[in-house]
Design a protein around this nucleic acid. Structure first.
Lengths: 343, 343
DNA sequence: TTGTAAGCGTTATCAC
DNA sequence: GTGATAACGCTTACAA
């Protein structure tokens, strides 16, 4: 099949070792020999097997990236950021979509370990991910948590300042006059949801509004989840005047449900969410969102991981928190000039 | 470091070979020994190294996927489709963003080969990608072209029926009364652009409209490219009444330019493009698009590749063409009921 | 049923 | 400068 060092060595009339030296730009090879070997390499179209060198070096130059779903623009940006940073350091990314499924995630983790990736960046499904991550962290396998933290895990992590973000987002609704605000969030064991609910409660408290558990809906963090939760909200006796969605997909599901119920946004119900919707924001700026610097966050996560892999950093876990920004558009009901609209 | 077969063998009091048999579910091991070995595996937390087994089996269970940019929703969907199909077959995906940069793409290709991926799915930058792909195809390395074809390459490929798609999209504009239609497309050496321009010319011919090269703008297939091209179009003495963008990003760039020039869509200029914008389509259905089944296309590409890898298919290259669908919304100027709008 | 030996392609080590 | 040897962790082929 593919030529090996030995094939090249034979053709160049040297030993495999000398070829290896040339391939790895090591000193101790005469200019003449080096040239001869380079010619042989070119002639045979020789490409050194990283599989073999991984075996000896115990490094694969591979990084695993586990996220819920690439097709969510938020995570797609993260993939791009992580990939770019990894590439510049000579690493490649193995991408895995956990589909927010704990089992699938566990499967991916163990498979990545079997593939001997040098490190792992993961946006864990939930707090429960701790079960299959704890072992790695204990034996000091390089792991960086992205977007979602897991308290019991003593490892590097990069995330949004969820508490403050939610506080600002909800405070904005309160300023606009909303008192009865519903929240659609994820199952209770995810750090982002917990942090955001905490921030929301702060904002409510600051606005002297009583918090009610009846207005908090836990659901899947996708369009379906948002759709169903919105349906429940729509059916409430005392309907909320605003909805806060924990992420963009849930917000989209809400829009579908509200539209189907012939309710106008924001006139009948205001709607805001976390995570911007990239192109959407340009084509028809509609949703008021709390935007996260997804790509940058992933870049930083990759950077932290690379440092871990290189081993040039103390064992102390590092936590990087990003502020994010509130982008006010129309779905919240704020009165804005419409000049920037396409029509 | 990580335990090896030998560690397990020692603990279980057997040979490495017997452990290997248990790990790979091979017959010829007594139930008793098997149990003992399984216990040892559990105790040591042993995970067989795929690096080592890749070396012997000459298979890595890895597939390379090269696309221009994951953060384009169109390609993100493809990543998801390819990854899901690969995973079900026990393969993992190495993801690479070529950034439409031929050099970077070449670098990726050779690196993936060095990593000994079992196959490669690629949405090539352009016809020029042939240079670094031809070698692979010749030596029968499994390659599947996705989205964009390269004529001179005799390998499997999956793509949209670009000619027919463009024909229908442009025909729609003609029906709406447009006679002076501008096209923003990619550099001339990309199959999608060529096919789409061909379809466009067919539609024009069928509408008895003369084709003019002055109305074709070649540019980068991203937002910037669309923005610049639209600026040129806006400045034309005889301004076109409609613009056809070769992809969604270009369309978004157009929207920016048009908006900046205070031109309304579609009243002043109609705008249509290829590739839908996922969530956008739900939040505020505005752009009339020719949508491609991106995820399915990628699933099929992965399937073709897996078959190639398995070797259970003739050497004849296979070409799968998808029809796609015209989704009429507002940016084209068609009169539609607005009931489905959020506001 | 179980074990031995050799080899996959590369490289670290030490000798020439 | 260059090369022989062993080792990385696993598995195929063969032997016991």
């Amino acid at each position: 099949m593919a030529p090996t060092v030995r094939d090249v060595a034979r053709l160049a009339g040297v030993s495999a070792m000398t070829v290896s030296r040339v391939v790895n730009d090591q000193p101790g090879v005469s200019a003449e020999t080096r040239l001869r070997i380079q010619e042989a390499i070119a002639e045979l179209n020789y490409a050194p097997s990283k599989v073999a060198s991984s075996l000896t070096s115990a490094k694969t130059q591979l990084i695993g990236l586990i996220i819920p779903d690439v097709s969510n623009p938020f995570f797609a940006l993260m993939v791009r950021g992580a990939e770019a940073t990894a590439r510049k350091a000579g690493y490649r990314l193995l991408i895995c979509n956990s589909e927010s499924d704990l089992r699938l995630e566990r499967e991916y983790v163990s498979d990545l370990v079997a593939h001997r990736v040098d490190g792992l960046i993961i946006a864990p499904v939930s707090e429960k991910s701790e079960a299959h991550l704890a072992g790695l962290v204990e034996r000091k396998f390089p792991v960086v948590l992205l977007d979602r933290a897991v308290d019991s895990l003593d490892c590097d992590s990069v995330a949004l300042d969820n508490v403050d973000g939610a506080r600002r987002l909800v405070a904005h609704l309160i300023v606009l006059g909303h008192r009865r605000i519903a929240f659609i969030t994820d199952p209770e064991d995810v750090s982002t949801g917990r942090g955001r609910m905490q921030g929301a409660r702060q904002a409510l408290a600051e606005g002297a509004i009583e918090f009610s558990d009846d207005l908090v809906f836990h659901t899947r963090t996708d369009q379906i989840g948002g759709y169903r939760a919105a349906q429940q909200i729509i059916g409430m006796a005392q309907r909320p005047t605003a909805i806060v969605a924990i992420n963009n997909l849930i917000a989209v599901g809400c829009i579908q449900a509200l539209r189907q119920a012939d309710l106008r946004i924001p006139d009948d119900v205001a709607l805001v969410c976390f995570d911007d919707i990239q192109l959407q924001a340009v084509v028809a700026p509609f949703l008021t969102v709390f935007d996260q610097p997804a790509e940058t966050m992933a870049r930083v996560a990759a950077q932290l991981l690379l440092e871990r892999i290189a081993g040039n950093v103390g064992r102390q876990a590092r936590t990087v928190t990003f502020p994010g920004q509130l982008i006010v558009r129309e779905s919240c009901g704020a009165k804005l000039p419409r000049s920037h609209w396409a029509r």
